[in-house]
Computed example of a mutant assay.
Amino acid sequence: MQDNQQRVALQLLAYAAQKDVPITRLCQLAGIEFEALKQSQGTTPTAKQMSDLWRNAVHLSRDELLGLHLGEALQVAALGIVGELVRSSRTVGEALTHAAAYIHLLTDLFLMEVRPTATAFEVQLVPMPKQEHEDAFVARQLRDVLLALLLHEVNGLVLAKIQPRQVRLQVSAAELPEYQRVLRCDTITPADDIALVFDERYWHEPILTANYELQRLLLEKAASAQTTFAERQPIGTRITRYLLANANMGIPSLEDIAANFNTSVRNMQRKLREENLTYQQLADDVRKELALHYLHTSAHPLKEVSYMLGYNELSAFSRAFKRWTGHTPGGYQKRSALPA
């Protein structure tokens, strides 16, 4: 069974070959053994190899928006079991809900959140808190792959032509026309969050390839894969993912986290020490990410944001936020509201 890094590397190499990039040369530059990569139990590329692969693929193809174009060209089957869950779902809303639940089987750089409202629903890509090994260049390419693939493949599974009402992400003025073309949306708003916004009528749009029995089997397989995936992840990564995925429930105590992971507080602290981490560090990183997200994208009053992040006093939240960003929450919110 191929893991996510191996799958992405193979898809990238296949697409680069279509653009007349010499694959042997590209693999050499990235330090990847192509024959070993192709095996079903092949070598998993390291983070550095994936970074080198993306950078050299962009350079050799002379396509700065390679991720966007790769996502446009890919089929949902490229997502493996997650793609099959999308294809077998009953409706667009159900497909997106499954994709969000299992996106971590595809990438460790983003979480996906789906938020229905009265008149629309948003599909957000939420970056994981930055780690030293992460590469912003690769994260942007993968962001574009996911956005373009999501839009184009959902369109291929329904009778309606689905177009976003709005897209929020950071792109340059020179790149804007190409993003508008690929994402089929003229309203691309510069923002620090990443989101596709759709009219609510698409939520219940039936998927042509729905298969209830297959979906049941796929969900069992996905649950097994999720367990295997979790067991392989560092404890710090697992905790961070849990905190972000359950952000609406607030930041739990270390005791609650340990209980959720079926271990003791002492054992969890020991595993964190082995990774040179503490639970307080992880919780603060998540609080920072959530604070930036809430202040950018929601109308929550500062006091409510403070409460949601586990601060009993607004003053304590303000001190923490200023330590993280150099700004007070109110000042940051005003700066964010200014026209770009």
Rank of each mutant, 00 (worst) to 15 (best):
K48Q: 06
Q39M: 05
Q124D: 11
I257A: 13
P129T: 08
Q170D: 14
A222Y: 08
A259C: 06
V21C: 00
L282P: 04
D3A: 12
L309G: 10
E213T: 12
A258S: 14
T325N: 05
P234K: 08
P234L: 09
T278N: 02
V86Y: 13
D144W: 07
N155D: 11
L159G: 14
Q170N: 11
L70P: 02
L29D: 07
E205T: 15
A73Y: 05
E132F: 13
H300G: 00
D108K: 04
E289I: 02
M268Y: 09
A139N: 08
A17R: 00
A16D: 01
T189A: 14
N248M: 09
T278L: 00
Q170V: 06
A100C: 11
D63S: 04
L13V: 02
L196N: 10
R115Y: 07
A16P: 00
E113F: 10
Q281E: 13
A225L: 10
S51M: 08
G67K: 04
D108I: 03
Y15K: 01
K130Y: 12
Q131I: 07
H293K: 10
S336C: 05
T91R: 07
L70M: 13
M112Q: 12
T209I: 01
L282M: 06
S318R: 14
V154R: 05
P22Y: 14
A36D: 07
L10H: 03
R216T: 04
Q166A: 15
F34M: 02
L125I: 01
Q6I: 02
G83L: 11
H296Y: 08
R115K: 08
T187D: 15
Q131H: 10
L106R: 03
S306A: 15
L338R: 15
N248I: 07
L282W: 11
R335H: 09
L244K: 10
H327K: 08
D144I: 05
